[in-house]
């Protein structure tokens, strides 16, 4: 690595000490490390772009689907090479029955399978229940005639038919139940609002809400009103109510008014009459 003076000159004013240190990197590397580096990198790049480790024969997937369908249509075509295509090899045939399979695996077990270990006494069902003995032989379920004979043919026909478009399943919305709850909640809230509003607006005795009160009061006798106010006075102990009751309880007659006004000089009464004319029939001293 070449040491250039300009870097050291730049460094010297900042740190004399650092400028004096050898710029040789103390780390070392193997002598032949760089010799083969390019080849190693290229090898790694090629390895990364290498195709997959598992291969399939050329043209394996060509005709694969058709071959599979042909095999299915052939019914129990296992072990037969109904398919086509270069890589289409027949599948290994499965044993047709359990007995055959077991025979291949263990002939001894296959022999034992046919022998029933457990036995029941002869005529057991007849003794326990004659009905059960008869019912054992009866099968209440029936199938249409020739059903099993025609079953493989029907399946093959269905396989050959083009697949009909399936109707989408009916979607039942969960929201229906939710909507009922929503309506119920809304009704409760609306009811509360109306009730509270009515209670607040319809204060007993307020204007416009009880227009018949003055009419009804006119029919009530003074004595009844006096009794009512006296009772109300007894029940209410607030100062405002008490004074109102006292005023209401005063029983004025003409004699009382004369005695009350008797102490007032005539001049003042006249002046009052001049200012508040209309009360023509007020008695004077």
């Amino acid at each position: 690595m070449n040491v250039k003076n300009d870097i050291l000159e730049e460094l010297r004013p900042v740190s004399e000490l650092v400028a004096t240190i050898s710029r040789e990197t103390p780390y070392r590397v193997a002598d032949d490390y760089f010799t083969d580096l390019a080849n190693r990198v290229l090898l790694r790049i090629k390895t990364q772009h290498k195709p997959l480790a598992f291969n399939v024969p050329d043209g394996y997937f060509e005709g694969f689907a058709e071959g599979m369908l042909a095999r299915i249509k052939a019914g129990a075509g296992l072990g037969t090479s109904a398919g086509s295509g270069p890589g289409f090899e027949p599948m290994k045939a499965l044993p047709e029955t359990v007995d055959q399979e077991l025979s291949g695996l263990s002939p001894l077990l296959a022999q034992l399978r046919s022998k029933e270990t457990y036995r029941m006494p002869e005529g057991y069902f007849e003794e326990v229940s004659p009905i059960l003995a008869v019912a054992k032989e009866l099968n209440p379920y029936t199938v249409p005639e020739e059903y099993f004979h025609q079953l493989p043919v029907g399946i093959e026909e269905k396989l050959e038919q083009p697949q009909e478009e399936k109707k989408p399943a009916k979607v039942v919305a969960f929201g229906r139940r939710t909507r009922l709850w929503q309506y119920s909640a809304a009704a409760v809230v609306a009811g509360l609002i109306l009730t509270i509003g009515w209670l607040r607006l319809h204060v007993p005795g307020s204007h416009g809400t009880s227009p018949t009160v003055p009419v009804s009061l006119a029919k009530v006798s003074d004595q009844d009103l006096q009794n009512f106010l006296a009772n109300t006075h007894a029940e209410n102990d607030t100062p405002v109510d008490q004074s109102a009751a006292n005023i209401a309880a005063l029983d004025f007659n003409d004699g009382d008014i004369k005695s009350l006004l008797g102490e007032i000089p005539d001049g003042e009464l006249k002046q009052y009459m001049d200012e508040h004319g209309g009360a023509v029939d007020i008695a004077t001293n």
Partner: peptide, 14 residues
Amino acid sequence: DKYFDPNKLEWKLQ
């Protein structure tokens, strides 16, 4: 590091 020498200034620098 195999070649580390604490007495050498260049290693102190590292």
